[in-house]
Design a protein around this nucleic acid. Structure first.
Lengths: 204, 204
DNA sequence: CAATAATAGATAGTTTTAATATCCAATATC
DNA sequence: GATATTGGATATTAAAACTATCTATTATTG
């Protein structure tokens, strides 16, 4: 398959494929001459993965490159892997006040590196709430933490251990591509809960 | 307070404040002459809200404008309100295949408008998973749905009903600004769960 | 009261990101 | 041999979110 074929089966324009090649997201095809190269199913799968990370997962080109690097060359440490994936998908951020975040995590009983990027992410998110003048109801954050820990435990329990590739793939995609699913499900759950509380609109 | 004071207390550059004024996000100050206007605490609160929506909530200028319009002029219908907020923060999207989404929602027993934007959002998210070749473990999506419905029910139960303004504020901010909190908590929960499963790294 | 600074409002410019488009020499294909 | 396609390099575009400049006015200050 040449580049036009790759474009046809994935729906990604040739110019864009060339762009991803330049950016090092997509590995080059096998050159058969100075002006021809062949692409195979590995390229189509890779291209689809790139598009999923750029689209639904909402990553930038740079973040996709970092994540793909981890997929291509994962270290041996499974615990560390999770942290590296999460780091790769953080926006570089200021250092907000982590006091509220640490208190919340402490009350939840979690053991977390206090200065980790993810703690900063939580701190920044709580900062946003405070800046907007939103005070969550008593105990609400703890409830979020408990609920999400249940889900996270199930996710971690499902990480396959027989093959490193499978583990990496599961971890990366499970971390990143599930996020939009969660947000969509939350909004739909809110609609259902709101319908139960406030009554359905008279549709149909 | 003049514009420079507003800039000072919020940390937002004057040029940016003028930009938000042009874009209609921030209501103009009270003119005291052709080249002077006064701003008050309402402006600082509004400005902080704008920044929270643009930053932590990750909205675009256009989405912020739509959300603020709802805050400024909410209709009477509480059920409808939730839907309108959610619509305002959707990216315009294609019409993906909603079959998988509908099946999931059906199994969860939720009553949702099948052709709603949020269903499309869920469908797009599931599409992303599929495109990347990720198959969630059996029953995992149902578990997400159940867990999030619990949280959503608590959220909806806390919507204040005594004042329309309070309800709108709670709904808008609770929908949008909690999202980054949830994602951060999920990642931290994953780290804690991973530590329990794979053991902590030998830190310190 | 003169000099200096600040402001509203308009317009123009910048930066970043992600993608397209154009060229050209070198194949491939008909 | 004529036409089309490609790899690779370079250039251009489009959108979003700011940021800077300019001008005619006010304020403020010494």
């Amino acid at each position: 398959m040449r580049i036009s074929g790759l474009s046809r089966v994935t729906g990604v324009p040739v110019a864009t494929i060339k762009y991803y090649l330049r950016e090092g997201l997509l590995f080059p095809g096998r050159l058969t001459s100075s002006t021809q190269a062949l692409y195979d199913e590995a390229h189509t799968a890779r291209l689809r993965l790139i598009r999923a990370l750029l689209g639904p997962a909402g990553l930038s080109i740079t973040q996709v490159r970092d994540v793909l690097r981890i997929i291509d060359d994962p270290g041996p440490d499974m615990f560390d892997l999770l942290g590296r994936v999460q780091c790769a998908t953080m926006l570089p951020s200021q250092r907000p006040d982590t006091a509220a975040a640490e208190e919340l995590i402490g009350r939840a009983g979690w053991h977390i590196e206090p200065d980790s990027p993810e703690m900063h992410r939580l701190a920044a998110a709580l900062d946003g709430l405070a800046a907007a003048g939103f005070v969550p109801p008593e105990g609400m954050l703890e409830r979020y933490a408990a609920g999400l820990h249940q889900l996270a435990s199930a996710e971690i329990a499902h990480i396959p251990t027989e093959s490193a590739e499978a583990a990496v793939r599961y971890t990366v995609l499970g971390t990143l591509l599930i996020e939009p699913v969660l947000l969509a499900l939350r909004r739909l759950a809110q609609q259902d809960a709101a319908r139960r509380r406030f009554g359905a609109p008279t549709t149909g």
